[in-house]
Amino acid sequence: MSILLIAEHDGRTLGEASRRAASAARQLGEGYDVLVIGGPGCVGVADAAAGLDGAVQVLLCEDDAYADDLAEPVAERIATLVRDGGYDGVVAAGTSTGKDVMPRVAGLLDVAMVSDAVAVENGRTFIRPIYAGNALARVRCEDVVRVVTVRTSAFDSVAEADTAAPCERLSAGDHPPLSRFVDESLSAGDGPDLANARVVISGGRGLGGAEAFDMLRELAAELGAAVGASRAAVDAGYIANDCQVGQTGKIVAPELYLAVGISGAIQHLAGMKDSRVIAAINRDEEAPIFQVADYALVGDLFEAVPQLLDALRTRQ
């Protein structure tokens, strides 16, 4: 059995998500190859991928066609590689890129796919959440080629290998122009990435406006935390879309999740209930968030958050 791990990267660095997906890849077979596919200049990513524990070899495929993460050429190149290389497993992190590309790969290979695996029971059996995480399905993959995305918050990162895996270059495919990149607007993220942060502080509609998020950002800076939000806060325009935690936003499982002014709709809980410790501040003691909280503070967040900040500063 041979497994192919698709590296998640931004053209310069290997994403933490890939180190976690590599854990899942190791559980699918003996070792795995890593495909680094992107525009010219991805050598640094390939070098980092070569250091993933369990990597047998790195395959580097650089071409302008792959520079913009367009699903059509990338999926086609992956599908061709899987056929030619005789791989029987393809694994990627369930990031927005993985979610875009991997089902297309499965479609091209005419096989089923396992989305968002949270556990690998054996090489063919997986656990995955359904109904916004309100149930867990155990599924067995019957197709020869297993195509899997993994929920990275459920897997630890692999260690650094003692020796680097060898790297081989692959040629680009010939792709019809189905799509082209126009532009992008990415939020300038200061502080840790939401999906991988050790501490996440999220705000909800209870914050009442964009200004109140500055208060959470101050607290986040103190704790080295990332700032998230409920859908209600995003829809109200308090904070950018990509900060949304929930069924259809980011799924996080940090050491500490602090929910501020969040009532705790099922869709939000789906995105954070696997956090190790959950603390919540809310005025309404009946708020559903308190059903999953390890520490519940019932009170006015506009008093509690500054007090919490004071308490953190004075104890240090």
Binding site: V111, V139, V292, D294
Partner: peptide
Amino acid sequence: GLTLLGVSEPPGREPGVRVADAAELA
């Protein structure tokens, strides 16, 4: 392509504690 072997409830969380104020939370 996929066989559903079973569906289970996700593991529940232990009941939490209520804290009096921000200082206790910290």
